[in-house]
């Protein structure tokens, strides 16, 4: 444990969240650590509290929420650790987008609907990287190119509603990566997308991780995507973290029932297809 915490760059300790007085908690005593360059997945059914954890990590929870526990971003050893929940707003603003960035499930909704893509990107570049106004536009097109957009000029001129879901998710990813963050939180980045586009985005995230030393916190309900993108899976069931295991030990016999159920669900469609094929052949 001691040996491990020296490498960990992001630590959540005993986090509990309730949205209002008298309401049931949405997270209870959740602890997890992410090491530098590591990818972990937070898997659970909808309503289990996994998105709340993502919001807490960016300190985007409503001010009225009741929060206990701590979230610490360590970064590399030169920098002082940042206490996400305890710091003042200005410190947090320097963390958001620069050191922790986030991609949402609904990419079109997470973009500003009345601003052209290149302008949004240029603005983010100016704010988080301090790029000058004149070079920001070129930088915007470059970052579009980096997320696999073949025609950055045309996409840059477009408004968010003119993009397809997959294209918008690429743009959202470009926005998130603009600040060269250490940690990327991806909240169901592919659930709203079709099969082929899903595969494209999974491939893109994989490629990005290969190129940069980016840590990834993937939030999903689909064990298949978790397996494809990460090397450790944390399972949340009904507000509690019930399992935390490396991807290669997922199928071990002594896994928690919730983990087994989620794996089964992911396998079901595939296995049902196989049984059906066997039956009909």
């Amino acid at each position: 444990m001691n040996e491990r915490s020296t490498h960990s760059m992001f630590e959540v300790t005993d986090l509990s969240v309730r949205y209002a007085r008298g309401e049931a908690p949405v997270l209870r005593d959740v602890s997890l650590t992410i090491d530098r360059g590591e990818s972990i997945a937070l898997v659970g059914d909808s309503g289990c509290g996994k998105s709340t954890l993502a919001l807490a990590a960016m300190r985007l929870l409503p001010k009225t929420a009741f929060i206990r526990g701590s979230i610490v971003l360590r970064g590399d050893n030169r920098e002082t650790p940042v206490d996400i929940l305890g710091s003042d707003e200005r410190t947090i603003e320097r963390v958001r987008g620069r050191r922790i960035a986030m991609v949402f499930q609904n990419p079109i909704g997470s973009l500003n609907p009345v601003m052209r893509i290149e302008k949004q990107l240029a603005e983010v570049l100016r704010v988080v990287r301090g790029t000058s106004r004149s070079t920001a536009k070129r930088g915007a097109l470059e970052s579009l190119n980096r997320v696999g957009i073949a025609d950055p000029v045309r996409v840059g001129r477009a408004y968010p509603h003119e993009l397809s879901g997959g294209m918008a998710q690429r743009v959202a990813l470009a926005l998130a990566l603009a600040g060269e963050p250490e940690l990327l939180i991806a909240d169901e980045p592919t659930s709203a997308l079709d099969g082929i586009v899903q595969a494209q985005i999974v491939e893109l995230i994989r490629e990005t991780q290969r190129q940069t030393n980016l840590s990834l916190l993937l939030i999903t309900h689909d064990m298949a995507i978790a397996k494809a993108l990460t090397n450790r899976v944390c399972v949340i069931e009904a507000t509690r973290l019930v399992d935390d295991c490396p991807i290669d030990q997922l199928t071990a016999a002594d896994r928690h029932a919730a983990t087994a159920r989620l794996i089964q669900a992911a396998e079901f469609k595939r296995s049902a297809a196989i049984t059906l094929m066997e039956r009909t052949i």
């Binding site: 099969g195 899903q198 595969a199 999974v202 491939e203 994989r206 298949a224 995507i225 397996k227 494809a228």
Partner: peptide, 11 residues
């Protein structure tokens, strides 16, 4: 379409 299903699992 059918290959995309595998891509989620392997690369």
């Amino acid at each position: 379409l059918s290959a995309a299903r595998d891509l989620k699992r392997t690369s």
